[in-house]
Design a protein around this nucleic acid. Structure first.
Lengths: 224, 224
DNA sequence: CCAAAAGTGTTAGTGATACACCCATGT
DNA sequence: ACATGGGTGTATCACTAACACTTTTGG
């Protein structure tokens, strides 16, 4: 035998599952879907699905994301791969978990009615989840906070133009604490990531400056 | 249909691949194996293999690690999952990459002869690798440095008892730069991670203090 | 005039870095 | 006595955190 046989072993199934974060009403929310089928029929689960043989993991995630939320070109990050033998009662299923950050203004699926099988629910009030999805959520929250601290991912949750206060607010939501606004503005502006975009009009108080991100910087830098 | 069918889709193959780090002769090395079969017959690759249907990912990694190096109970960390469609010319293969840190004293497979099909090679002098293994190595090196900076994983490369100088040396090897020994000792001791274990005898200079790690702390703390 | 959020500097404390000399042992 | 690595303190600098008042607009 000159070529190793990749079909010698029985293959596991492979899925991608996603924690999709957005901020609605000053609250960090994730998208959950109610399962239509067994196992865990009727339970909440995070969106996901099988990886097709002819698509990459990123393609699979983007496809599922588009199906569930109607958005594309959002911030996506692979989190971790969960492969316990018993994590799916139907058989061996390995899942590659991702997180997505979506600016809620782009969403077609907005705050949905209670009857819907897909809903945005606050991370502080998540129901019991199917499979090991709670573990995935906990992992995602840790990663999200870390990324907020050291990278510019936070801006993915905002529209292109924003005020300093908007940024501070999403940091306060994610870290569940208040920051001093002088120190916050000082840090953000000192990093030289932002470009002035004029002044916001039609507010019933002193008009704030508007900024945009110069470019989405991949590097790890200390933000907060 | 009440139960979703997990066998609806053609399944990819799933492997685990490992970057196994150790320090030999004051040099950071990884284990590479020469491929016996096509594709890439004769090329160097990182160790790995198919995940069996009845073992978890960690079990698969530990099994492969034991086969290749004869060691168990070493530091293991999942890195990232690589799933490009064309990464393996034989077909669709998704690989979950891990890194392992091994104290070279525990190795059965020591610096091997040139004829061997498994060798420890310096990360600074790695030959061209099969598949996308270079990408995995680059990722592992970044992660290793990050982990050295923020956690106590470095101690996994040392025997249970060690001197401050030994720790400093592995940090210098991994970061490829020198640290000031007063500042280094100050930082490490200040963290309160170490327990004194007496004094090292039979050295032809002032005998150094020996330490051990109090416990392997999972938390993220700033080390360097 | 009032309400609401924007904008802006200084000080004190903490942690990081730079730097040099004497010590204990084996040969 | 010499060679080898071990052990130790201080001063400066940079960064972080705490803290309050005035400004601009709409209603």
């Amino acid at each position: 035998m000159q070529e190793e046989n990749i079909h010698k072993f029985e293959k596991p199934s492979v899925t991608v599952d996603m924690i999709i974060f957005t901020i609605i009403d000053k609250d960090l929310k994730i998208l959950l879907v109610r399962r239509k089928f067994n196992p865990f029929k009727g339970k909440w689960a995070i969106p996901g699905g099988f990886v097709r043989i002819d698509e990459s993991l990123e393609q699979a995630v983007n496809r599922e994301l588009l199906e569930e939320t109607g958005v594309k070109n959002v911030y996506l990050e692979q989190l971790y791969t969960f492969g316990d033998i018993k994590r799916d009662p139907r058989g061996r299923v390995i899942t590659i978990a991702y997180m997505a950050l979506i600016n809620s203004l782009e969403l077609k699926l907005k705050a949905s009615t209670d009857a819907s099988d897909a809903q945005w629910l606050s991370v502080n009030n998540v129901p019991s989840l199917a499979f090991d999805h709670k573990k995935i959520l906990d992992y995602a929250l840790k990663r999200l906070r870390w990324k907020f601290e050291y990278t510019t991912v936070a801006f993915s949750l905002l529209p292109k133009k924003f005020t300093i206060n908007k940024i501070q607010t999403i940091y306060e939501i994610v870290f569940e604490k208040k920051f001093d606004k002088r120190n916050f503005a000082k840090k953000i502006l000192y990093l030289n990531l932002l470009k002035g975009e004029g002044i916001k009009k039609d507010v019933s108080h002193r008009p704030p400056m508007i900024y945009s991100l110069k470019k989405n910087i991949g590097e790890i830098i200390k933000i907060i």
